[in-house]
Design a protein around this nucleic acid. Structure first.
Lengths: 112, 112
DNA sequence: GCTCTTAAGTTCTTATTTGGAACTTATGGC
DNA sequence: GCCATAAGTTCCAAATAAGAACTTAAGAGC
């Protein structure tokens, strides 16, 4: 079964997961809420490959969660900003944060 | 970069994702909140392969999110129940549900 | 005492996805 | 000219997932 098959599932959780239920996607959204908007910021912050970031940004734009906006004309440079649909995803990330804070404390010195 | 490298990340969202930031894992947890507890129920409900369910259940048990309990001695049969740590993950799933309900309506007759 | 069914996995082979590094395009600065 | 920056794309190897069949243990029906 493919992930895209979940997009018409009866369950709203499954439909949400088909779109944003992916680790890199969720990390990109976290970065957006932290104020990031550019390709190389996402690459540096998440540690994902450029290929993955490229792919996930494309999906998020198609889904109307992010919007691609030019911030420079020559050379053409784009940044990605949260739409209202994207903004409204924040409760989910906050729930992840709260749960992580409570149940997954850092044991050693952080690597990242 | 590997996923497991996120488990010591400074960010609690990243640490949470290293453990449960996977579509099948989140679908299994959804099923647990819907009252399911057995292997074949997860397979049928999520549409994932048996291999994946087996792997994800193992991880969730190791992480202390689910507990494996015998419900039959001969033959040995196990079921998986949420621990308190697992129970406390419900706000995240509810956030996914609310966001999915609002922003991802079903367009055609459901396939699943 | 043979065959069917159920439950919880495991194993196998083939496809798809990801990781990592190098390359591209356009421009500005030294 | 040569180096740097930003936002990607391309390539191949490695890791993961898909799909179906097999395993183990027991009870039910005949």
């Amino acid at each position: 079964m493919k992930w895209t098959d979940l997009d018409e599932n009866w369950c709203p959780v499954a439909r949400a997961l088909s779109l944003v239920g992916d680790r890199w996607t969720l990390l990109i959204l976290r970065d957006c809420f932290l104020g990031m908007s550019r390709f190389d910021q996402f690459v540096a912050s998440t540690g994902a490959t450029r290929h993955l970031i490229s792919d996930r940004l494309k999906r998020l734009v198609e889904a109307g969660i992010l919007e691609k906006q030019a911030y420079s004309e020559r050379p053409k440079r784009y940044e990605y900003v949260l739409t209202e649909k994207g903004q409204e995803f924040s409760p989910a990330l906050m729930a992840f944060r709260d749960w992580g804070k409570k149940h997954l404390p850092v044991r050693r010195a952080s690597k990242a």
